[in-house]
Amino acid sequence: MPTVAPYDIEGHVATAAFLGETAFFAAASGEIHRLEGGAKVTAAHEGLLTCIRDPYSESLLSGGEDGRVLRIAATGDVTELANVPRKWISAVAAGPQGAVGYAVGKSSFVRLADGTVKEFAETRTVEAIAFAPKGLRLAAARYNGVSLHWAGMNAEPMDLEWKGAHTIVTFSPDGRFVVTAMQENALHGWKLDGAKTGAEARHMRMTGYPAKVKSLSWSPKGKWLASSGAPAAIVWPFSAKDGPMGKAPLELGTRADIMTTCVCFHNTDEILAIGFIDGMILGVRIADGKEVLLRRPGKGAITSMGWSGDGRLLAFASEAGDCGIIDIAG
C-alpha cells in the first residue's frame, strides 16, 4: 500500500520535482523548498511564475515577477541566467547543450551555454516555449499558432498556423510532432514529417474536453500523450505513423464529474499518476487500466507531480500548499 509523507507550504505551490533523490517544491511566493535531512528553504524570486525540471541536468529552471531567470542546483544554490527589469518571465524551457529558453512579451530568447543570447520576435505575445529533443530548435506558442526557430543558425522560422490562443507547447520525444493546449477546451497538433503539400494534412485536432487542458505528459518512449481537462486522464496514442489521427484516446481514472488537473507519466514504465481538483491522486497502468489509490483527497487541486530517479517516489504539490511525497512501494 502506498504511503504518504505530507509537507505543508503556505499558499500556491507551482512545481514538485526531484533532483536526484531530493524532493523540491517551488512556491508562488518565490521560495524553493527542498527536503534534504529536513526542510531547507531558498529565497529565489519576488513572486515565482514558472518552474521546471531541466531534463538535461540535475537542476531546476525558474522565472518570476522580478524579471529573473534562475537555475537552482540540487544543493539549493541559485545562479541567475537572465534579468529583464520590469518584465515578467512566465515561460522557461530547458534545451540540449546547456541551452535555456525564456519568453518576455512578444519575444522568445535562447541563452546558449557560452552566455550568448539570441532573440526571436513574434507578432503576438509568447505564451509558452519548448525545445525539440534534438538540435537547438525552439517552439514558441502564441495566438494563432506556433513558430519554430533554429537557435543555432540564421534560418527563417517555420510557422505552424491554427486560429486561437495556444497556451502550452510540447514536442513528442521523437521530435515528429508538436502539440499545443489551447485557450478553448482542446489540443492541437502538427505532424512535422508529414506531407509537404497541403498543410491541412499535417493537422491533428484533439477536441471534446469539458475543461481547459493545463497539464500534458509524454510516456517514457513517446507512445502516449496524457492530458488533464476531463473527469479522467485523456491519453492519446502516438505510436502510429500519423499519431492520433483517426484514433480514440484512452480514458483513465474516470471519476464521475471530478476534473483532472495534473498528469505525470512514470520515468521508465507506462504508469500514469493522475491528480484531481479535490487533491486525490491515482496511479493507473496503461496496459490494463488497473488503478491504485496513491493519495486521498486533500485541501486543494493538484498542480504538479514529479517522480524520483529510481521511480519509487512521487512528489506532489497543490494550489493550497498541501504537498508531500508518496512511496508507491509502501
Rank of each mutant, 00 (worst) to 15 (best):
W236E: 07
W236L: 07
A233R: 09
I258W: 09
I234T: 12
S239V: 11
K247G: 01
T260C: 03
W236M: 12
K247H: 07
L252P: 13
D242V: 11
T268M: 04
G253N: 05
G246I: 09
W236D: 10
H266Q: 02
A256P: 05
C264R: 06
I234C: 13
A233G: 10
L250A: 07
R255C: 10
T260N: 03
M245E: 14
G246V: 09
C262D: 09
F238C: 15
I258C: 10
H266E: 00
L250Q: 09
V263Y: 04
A240M: 08
T254F: 06
I258K: 06
R255F: 14
A233S: 14
T261K: 01
S239A: 13
V263C: 05
K241R: 11
S239T: 09
G246D: 15
G253E: 03
M245V: 12
A248F: 11
E251Q: 15
A256L: 14
D257I: 12
I234F: 07
V263M: 05
P244E: 10
E251G: 13
C264G: 05
L250K: 04
M245A: 14
F265Y: 00
G253W: 03
L250V: 05
T261W: 04
F238D: 13
W236I: 09
S239W: 08
G246H: 15
L252A: 09
G243A: 02
T254L: 13
F265N: 00
A240C: 06
M245S: 10
T261D: 02
R255N: 12
R255S: 09
W236T: 04
T268L: 06
D257S: 14
L252S: 08
N267P: 05
T261Y: 03
T260K: 03
A248C: 09
T260M: 02
V263R: 03
D242F: 12
G243R: 05
P249L: 01
E251A: 13
D269Q: 13
P244K: 10
A248W: 08
M259V: 02
K247Q: 15
T254G: 13
M259P: 07
M259K: 05
T254P: 11
D257E: 15
V235S: 05
M259D: 07
V235Y: 02
H266V: 01
W236N: 08
P249Y: 01
T260D: 06
F265Q: 01
G253L: 02
F238T: 07
A256G: 06
H266A: 01
D242C: 07
L252I: 12
M259Q: 14
V235H: 04
F265R: 00
V263L: 04
M245R: 14
D257P: 04
P249I: 00
I234K: 10
T261L: 04
D257V: 14
F238I: 07
T261C: 03
S239M: 08
S239E: 11
T261V: 02
I258P: 02
F238V: 11
C262N: 07
A256I: 08
K241S: 11
F265H: 00
H266Y: 01
G246M: 11
A233H: 05
P237C: 12
A248L: 15
P244S: 12
P249M: 01
D269S: 15
A233F: 05
T260G: 00
P249T: 00
